[in-house]
């Protein structure tokens, strides 16, 4: 069996089609090799989003012709488009919106959902996915039990290798009732990107006593800026009065589990570890090679902070 069509649900931010969605496009090609890839736009600001999507290298962009104000309405709209265009897999980026629309769509179409996959492989007549469970402490290999299905892909699991293109935009008539849009957004406050909540942050840079002085936190903040990360601190740094206690990570502070945790000058006493050891990737910079932080870190640099951090900040700026 070959899958003829792969739909990718488009989300757009200020910089164009979101990176996770572009990565989902890569996934779509892996899941359905040779299939026609269709970008689906079902959003509140349809035209603008469709214009952004048309710059992708896809077969076409299909845009719902109605304004879509809720996840469930988006699912209804996509379902109607899929029914009209012909069966295929539907791929979402595992974003906050994607993981809300995807299961609604799966239910709407009566399809399996394979959420948050990190890899996909066609094996004979089916596709096998790997997805992390138990917060990454185990990986499950799963296969959907239907010819077509809905998938969401984990951020950064697939490379964004989409070249730019000029896809035609096709409008599709969708019929949405008031019942489909019961949940109404009454206000949206743009996120303050300058201050990221520790517990919500995807990346965190924390500083400890190894910084030696309060001014050392400027280095921490600079690296955090480059990584678009939140700034955390060890208890000792908080007690020294260098930063506010709301930034304390640890047993008696905040418990965090970001994708990336960078510990600068933090020895890693258990009280600190209790608050951050479940982070996905931990980087430690400390001049003491015996510091316990290196036992929980994935990558470590044993060096003076002030010789490493400015370089790291510059290097990160280059890749981000």
């Amino acid at each position: 069996m070959a899958i003829n069509r792969a739909y990718v649900y488009i989300e757009v931010d200020a910089k164009g089609v979101r990176r996770t969605v572009r990565q989902a496009l890569t996934a779509a090609a892996v899941i359905a090799p040779g299939a026609e890839i269709i970008a689906v736009v079902a959003s509140a600001k349809g035209d603008a989003d469709a214009a952004a999507a048309s710059m992708l290298k896809v077969a076409k962009v299909v845009q719902a012709d109605a304004a879509v104000a809720s996840s469930q309405a988006a699912a209804k709209a996509i379902a109607q488009i899929v029914k009209a265009q012909g069966p295929g897999v539907v791929v979402f980026g595992n974003t906050s919106l994607g993981r809300e629309v995807a299961p609604c769509l799966a239910q709407e179409l009566g399809l399996p959902l394979v959420p948050d996959v990190t890899s996909a492989q066609v094996v004979g007549d089916h596709v096998e996915f790997v997805r992390p469970i138990y917060a990454g402490k185990a990986m499950a290999k799963v296969k959907p039990l239907a010819e077509t299905f809905v998938v969401t892909t984990r951020a950064n699991a697939f490379l964004d290798n989409n070249e730019s293109g000029a896809a035609p935009v096709e409008k599709a008539t969708v019929a949405l009732t008031a019942d489909d849009q019961k949940a109404k957004v009454v206000s949206l406050v743009q996120r303050d990107t300058t201050k990221i909540e520790l517990t919500e942050a995807d990346a965190i840079v924390s500083g400890g006593m190894g910084l030696g002085k309060a001014e050392g936190f400027k280095q921490v903040e600079a690296l955090a800026d480059a990584l678009r990360a939140a700034v955390g601190a060890s208890r000792a740094a908080v007690n020294a009065g260098w930063v506010d206690h709301t930034q304390q990570v640890g047993q008696t502070g905040k418990t965090v589990s970001p994708t990336l945790y960078v510990a600068l000058g933090i020895s890693g006493a258990i009280q600190h570890q209790a608050g951050m050891s479940s982070s996905k990737c931990i980087v430690a910079v400390n001049k003491d090679p015996e510091a316990p932080i290196f036992q929980v870190a994935d990558y470590g640099i044993v060096a003076d902070l002030y010789s490493v951090v400015p370089l790291l900040t510059e290097e990160i700026k280059k890749v981000k």
């Binding site: 402490k137 990986m139 039990l145 470590g300 010789s307």
Partner: peptide, 26 residues
């Protein structure tokens, strides 16, 4: 709708990979 084919666990964390060299290289 979905069948689990198998489970695996990632290799346990074995302490940090210490990256050496000059600060620039590291």
């Amino acid at each position: 709708a979905v069948q689990v084919l198998g489970l695996s666990t990632p290799a346990p964390r074995k302490g940090a990979a210490i990256i050496g060299g000059s600060p620039q290289e590291a």
